[in-house]
Write a protein that binds this DNA or RNA. Sequence first.
DNA 1: TTGTATGCGTTATCAC
DNA 2: GTGATAACGCATACAA
Lengths: 365, 365
Amino acid sequence: MPIDTSSDASAAPIPLADTASRSTSLADVASLAGVSAGTVSRALSRPDMISEATRTRVLEAADRLGYVANGAARALASRRTRTVGAIVPRYGGSSFPTMVQGLESTLAAQGYTLLLSAPEHGRAHEPGILRALLERGVDAVALLGDEHPPQLFATLAASRTPFVMMWAQPDAHGASVGFDEHEAAALIVDHLAALNHQRIGFIGGRTGSNERARRRLRGLTLAIAKCGMTLSERALVETEYGFREGFDAMARIVADGLDVSAVVCGNDYLAAGALSALDHAGIRVPGMVSIASFNDNDFAPFLHPPLTTVRLPIREIGEQAGRYLLARLSGETPPPAHVQAVQLIARKSTGPAPQPQAKGEYGYP
Amino acid sequence: MPIDTSSDASAAPIPLADTASRSTSLADVASLAGVSAGTVSRALSRPDMISEATRTRVLEAADRLGYVANGAARALASRRTRTVGAIVPRYGGSSFPTMVQGLESTLAAQGYTLLLSAPEHGRAHEPGILRALLERGVDAVALLGDEHPPQLFATLAASRTPFVMMWAQPDAHGASVGFDEHEAAALIVDHLAALNHQRIGFIGGRTGSNERARRRLRGLTLAIAKCGMTLSERALVETEYGFREGFDAMARIVADGLDVSAVVCGNDYLAAGALSALDHAGIRVPGMVSIASFNDNDFAPFLHPPLTTVRLPIREIGEQAGRYLLARLSGETPPPAHVQAVQLIARKSTGPAPQPQAKGEYGYP
DNA sequence: TTGTATGCGTTATCAC
DNA sequence: GTGATAACGCATACAA
């Protein structure tokens, strides 16, 4: 996939050790407007400290010259960059973009720009990632999750950089935004219990490498125990998140001899894949539940049969994280403590547990 | 969803007009190492210009003090930020994150950081978006698409900022990376033609507001005409991308009286929704095709029945854009001209056109 | 309200 | 190979 540069208007020499004219600076605007550089600076960043007349004159001059402030100089002098760093690993093909969109939008509304680090795979914990952000002078940092090496927190503390952990637990060592996984699990389990389901299965993410998957499974286990239900060992699969993975997992559960009347999936992709596998197998499990709506393209209720879904506030996590950082950066009163459960929507489309016709098997309605 | 700050180690006063000790600077490292500031600077950024002995001494001192370079000062003096801006609208819930991940990874490998602007909806063209990036001193910019107001290009040119357009056409006024939509369409149409399909439908994005959707429809129209096939007006729907939208669109096509034997969908979400609608209606259309795999979670082949899919190199676009910018920034020879078609994978699972049992209706196999 | 002057921390250009 | 020293462009404290 070569690149098109045929009609390339941008093929001019790169502007590094600039040979030609430097770009217009405050001084240029100042001389055109007939004022001092300091006045221009104020007219641009503290409009209310300047007289109406000169302000318009300055603004006009700046406009005529196409003046663009030099952020580096501004940052050097003011000691702030109006920039926030985010470290969000494995980011494409996940639900994180929705969260980052929320973060970015919230920050952008206040003039902040997002510096995004999206390390692939296990590189998220490399010190260099955070360091690169700090060298860029980010005013604050948003991290995914709360499981990070101590050194990361030490570095953050040493640089006195405000930070927030997204999709994390309340007992993390620092500010965090998340939701109550246990409440989400309880909602699901209550729903299934009301429909007389007893033995259930779970297809979720890998608990070894994914803290969110781990919490989700733990919450489910607790809720199930509290209801006197059973989580089938044979129908408990850990896998990557994905449609194909859900398909394969459910296919395996079916092949092993389905001994559950309901299966909970860790997210919508897994669930959709699992449904598809059931369809292929000519089996319909009456209780199919997905915990997380994967993103804004919430397709669970349109599957056949529709899924019961718990909608997680992915985007809201990003927004809230942004609001927290903005508050910190503007010196406002620190936001309240503790993470609370959030909006959970259960679509009650799952049917009641049937009387199995043959042991461990459920046919079409 | 309040925020947890209970065990907050980051709740220290914000480091704005810093009252306490400034963070360690080059001078601090220099005095500890017993050299001049200039030497420290070189030891850190031009290791080969310094003697082995002093270099290690400097590095050790820097390490002991936990020195982190001040990017603002560095940018001011060196006139480069090692930062690249990206403007990618409507970010969550689309295939753009995959592309951005490719861009970010490629840039990060060379020490560049991505400044991400993800304007919601129509705000992508606002001059302020680009301006914010330029003020941050981005060394280069990556844009989504090639349809932007002239002023944007003018601003880019005035600031002599290298830029590249992603998912754009070769005849754009500037460097661009994309793929051949017409070739993708031709691949699909050839496939359907070989299976004797004659009349086909299309469910795609809104051509009024989405340049990619427009190109996709145009490519399809051309390919269909060339093969002597027919694009049914009644089975041509423009909608938002999404599962629900695909569902609704197909439901409408069915309600209007299906007069096609194949339906092409603009992306996998639309296709999956459309399949679901067919399932609900108890109808199976033998030719179901999706043009774009939505992202890495390529679920089309797992649907029932499986979709024939053309896989578009979304991530590769980002990677290639990153490589282009890196080449520009390092003064390398400009990459070759023209956009070429890319890897297209057709999964041949669509069946041949049947002899309709009743006019405009196709039953289950 | 406006002008003046200093400092921000680094790189780069000289000398040595 | 290393040390002074001058920009870099802006914000801001202080003076007017």
